[in-house]
Deep mutational scan, measured.
Amino acid sequence: HYVEVNGKKIQATSAEEAEKIAKKFAKIYNATVLDLGNYYKVT
């Protein structure tokens, strides 16, 4: 599981952790979290 933010991949140990990381970055960048199955993308 990982999160992609601005083209950078951030490794996460679980889907739950990946979701938390994605939501945190989405809040910082006022962005949207896309759940793409095996990873989250912040756009």
Rank of each mutant, 00 (worst) to 15 (best):
G37T: 03
D35R: 11
G37L: 06
Y2C: 09
Y2E: 02
Y2N: 01
E17G: 04
Y29F: 13
F25V: 08
K20S: 11
A18S: 04
K9M: 12
I10K: 01
T43P: 03
F25M: 11
Y40D: 04
Y40H: 07
K8C: 15
G37C: 09
N38A: 10
K20Q: 11
T43W: 10
K23H: 12
K27S: 11
I28D: 09
I21G: 00
I21Y: 03
A22G: 03
T32I: 15
A26D: 03
K27C: 12
K41C: 14
V5L: 09
E19A: 12
K20N: 10
Y40E: 04
E19D: 06
I28S: 06
K8L: 13
K41R: 09
V5T: 01
V33P: 02
Y39N: 07
A15M: 15
G37R: 00
A22F: 05
A15F: 08
Y39T: 06
E16I: 11
V5N: 00
H1R: 06
T13D: 12
A26R: 03
A12T: 12
N6P: 02
I10V: 07
Y29S: 05
T43F: 12
G7T: 03
I21E: 01
N30Y: 06
A12V: 09
F25Y: 13
A18R: 01
N30M: 08
K23M: 12
I28V: 08
I10P: 00
A26W: 05
V3K: 02
Y39V: 07
F25T: 01
E17K: 06
I28C: 14
A12F: 10
E16N: 07
K27F: 11
Q11K: 13
Q11F: 15
F25E: 02
T32V: 14
I10N: 00
K8V: 14
K23P: 01
Y29R: 03
I28A: 10
N38P: 09
K8M: 13
E19N: 08
N6K: 07
A18G: 01
L34T: 11
N6Y: 12
K20D: 09
V42M: 03
H1E: 02
G37E: 08
Y29K: 05
V42H: 03
E19Y: 15
Y29H: 10
E4W: 08
S14C: 07
V5M: 05
V3Y: 01
F25N: 03
I21C: 11
V42P: 05
G37N: 04
T13H: 13
L36M: 15
K24H: 15
G37V: 06
H1N: 07
V3S: 00
N6V: 05
K20G: 07
K20H: 08
E16H: 10
K24R: 14
K41S: 09
E16Q: 12
S14N: 11
T13I: 11
V5P: 00
H1V: 10
V42N: 03
A31N: 03
A15G: 06
A15N: 09
K27L: 12
E4G: 00
I28K: 12
K23Y: 13
A22Y: 04
V42S: 02
T32N: 09
I10R: 02
V33T: 03
E4L: 14
V33H: 02
D35V: 14
K8T: 11
D35E: 10
A31H: 09
A12E: 00
T13A: 14
T13Q: 13
E17N: 09
A22N: 00
F25Q: 03
Q11Y: 15
A18N: 02
K27M: 11
Q11D: 08
L34Y: 06
N38H: 13
N6D: 08
Y39P: 00
L36S: 04
G37A: 06
